[in-house]
Design a protein around this nucleic acid. Structure first.
Length: 551
RNA sequence: GCGCCCGUAGCUCAAUGGAUAGAGCGCUGGCCUCCGAAGCCAGACAUUCCGGUUCAAGUCCGAACGGGCGCACCA
């Protein structure tokens, strides 16, 4: 939050300075946190950017701006320095740091959160796996990223809803029902070959077994219905165990099957609309969407010549529905194998009268699974896959969620199942959780003393380790903004590991409980703040915060 | 062939166009009469190649090479 305080004031100063020099006041300068070899708190690059249009040495400009900052911001800035090619390095007054620390202690789990931010109403759609089999490890990555991103955006004050789009109609459902029926018949002694294009997984057998145990007449069983019901409840359980929940489960049949008074579905209507608006045309008996008009590679079929709609038709109606529900920003998490859909979905958004930026797609690369150093194939068709449940059961929810948040969505993720199973210090989540355990241990110890007080003098926290730690705590908000800006929550884990690093260094260098009651009391406040931020961060990551670790 | 993503340390990955490119694992060597050693300290090791833009490029642009994915009136 300190950064926001500084940058808000700087904005006025810089823009005035640019104006007085006849420059475009909207030159995009930035306020950065310098690399760790520089001891300044913030660095400003405005002088370097102004150097060229002003035809002036950047260091001279830096000096001019620096003088103004010192004069105008003396309540916040302690000193400045011109460095490198023309950076203005800013040193914040210690008092500001202590004030911020106090704020953490008071606001606790609300620290750095924004109560209301009416700019956007956001819908985050993720997972949305078809109910034809259990979630696999790739879905887990999407679930972890989507859920944490939604949590961060909510924390920052956006009105956020999390939604799962359920493809509960269409051909795949028929195949699923058929697969279950054949397994059922085989169980009853029927000699029927199982088609290779049907679902091969063991879970189909399990469903069939359950049905067989009910002793019903085969004609009374709706195999499709039963299979979907069974699989869906499994998916919901797996997500629940993974700490992921949804605000809305949106069913495809609501737009593709349900009819209004005139006997039309939403899919019927949007295709008609597109045709009326000349965004769709008939060719070879099929209805085509003119997506090339908005940058797609080729036009796409909405309705086949046999009259059946494609998935794109449902998707178009679905996204129209999202906008109609009042969402101003749609965020879709998509596995990289679906990247081809981005162009056509954005085309639909634009045809519906929205900007292509109203729909953001976060593409996450697929998870390649390693088993004993060998890559393992994944396919729900062949039945050879690792389920999310299996990994969560073995490695634990915390390790899995932290692991999935460790890398940027754009990076391919190599998930070593053997490594994930290990409950050991090789897993970085323990490094962060250990901070909380150590803090708790000190708190327990402190209860034995009567000389510690609540009303403390935070200015006693003046060593390098303490200052570094406080600064790290204060950059929590900057990290959250970065997640917002990049639509990626992986900065959370990186931040938490840095914070843990600062804490462990502090811990090694400075004893909290000493003979000096004033100092001990102040340091206890510091570790209380550390615990607050660790908890806030881990909670956003969907990871629990144990009070103690077990060996 | 066309399109999208990626190429950074031995391995897996970070790095809002900024200063001396960071972690974890692995490796070498140190640190527990003291709040938890699941920790700390020290050491070795990296931007695939070639051009360009920029005051400044791992980051942007172009080309080459390598890896993943996608290119259906499938879902």
């Amino acid at each position: 939050m300190i950064k926001k305080l500084v940058s808000d004031k700087l904005q006025i100063i810089i823009s005035d300075y640019f104006k007085s020099k006849g420059l475009d006041e909207k030159i995009k300068y930035s306020l950065e946190i310098p690399p760790k070899n520089i001891d300044a708190d913030f660095a400003l690059n405005a002088a370097m950017l102004a150097a060229k249009p002003l035809k002036k040495n950047p260091k001279i400009i830096a000096q001019e701006i620096s003088d103004i900052i010192l004069k105008e911001m003396s309540d916040i800035i302690d000193k400045t320095a011109i460095a490198g090619a023309g950076f203005i390095n800013l040193y914040v007054k210690d008092l500001i740091l202590f004030k911020e620390l106090q704020k953490i202690l008071i606001q606790k789990d609300k620290y750095a959160s924004v109560s209301q931010n009416n700019k956007e109403k956001i819908l985050v759609e993720f997972v949305s796996a078809n109910p034809t089999g259990p979630l696999h490890i790739g879905h887990g990555r999407g679930a972890a990223i989507g859920d944490s991103l939604a949590r961060v955006l909510k924390y920052l004050g956006y009105a956020v809803s999390k939604e799962y789009y359920l493809n509960d109609c269409g051909n795949q459902m028929l195949v699923l029902g058929q697969s279950t029926k054949i397994r059922y018949q085989q169980l009853k002694g029927g000699k029927i070959d199982f088609p290779s294009d049907h679902y091969q997984g063991d879970y189909i057998n399990d469903i069939a077994k359950n049905l067989a145990a009910q002793n019903k007449n085969i004609d009374e069983i709706d195999f499709k219905e039963e299979a979907v019901k069974d699989i869906l409840s499994g998916i919901k359980n797996d997500l629940n165990d993974f700490g992921v929940d949804f605000d809305i489960w949106f069913s495809e049949s609501d737009i593709a099957v349900k009819k209004d008074n005139s006997g039309k579905t939403e899919v019927d209507k949007i295709c008609q609309d597109f045709e009326n608006m000349k965004f769709a045309y008939m060719q070879d008996g099929a209805l085509w969407l003119k997506s090339t008009q908005f940058g797609d590679d080729k036009d796409r079929v909405l309705r086949r010549s046999d009259g059946r709609y494609t998935y794109l038709a449902s998707d178009a109606a679905y996204h129209k529905n999202k906008f109609e529900r009042g969402f101003t920003k749609l965020i879709n998490l998509l596995g990289a194998d679906h990247h081809g859909y981005i162009a056509r979905l954005k085309a639909c958004a634009q045809m519906l009268g929205h900007s292509k930026d109203d729909l953001d797609v976060v593409l996450y690369q697929l998870v390649s699974l390693m088993r004993d150093g060998q890559p393992a194939a994944m396919s729900t068709r062949t039945g050879e896959f690792i389920t999310l449940k299996e990994v969560v059961d073995e490695a634990g929810k915390d390790a899995c969620r932290f692991f999935f948040l460790l890398r940027a969505p754009d990076s391919q993720l190599e998930f070593d199942i053997e490594l994930a199973k290990k409950q050991s210090n090789e897993n970085p989540v323990f490094y962060v959780q250990y901070v909380n355990a150590r803090c708790n241990s000190i708190l327990r110890e402190s209860k034995k003393r009567a000389d510690l007080k609540e009303d403390v003098d935070l200015t006693l926290l003046n060593t390098k380790e303490e200052r570094d730690l406080i600064k790290r705590l204060c950059s929590f908000y900057s990290m959250l903004s970065l997640c917002d800006k990049t639509l990626s929550p992986h900065h959370i884990t990186a931040y938490l590991m840095e914070l843990a690093d600062s804490y462990h260094r502090f811990y090694e260098a400075r004893r909290v409980l000493t003979d000096d009651a004033d100092l001990s009391s102040a340091r206890l406040k510091l570790i209380s703040a550390v615990m607050i931020i660790i908890k806030n961060g881990l909670t956003l990551a969907g990871v629990s915060v144990p009070d103690q670790m077990y060996k």
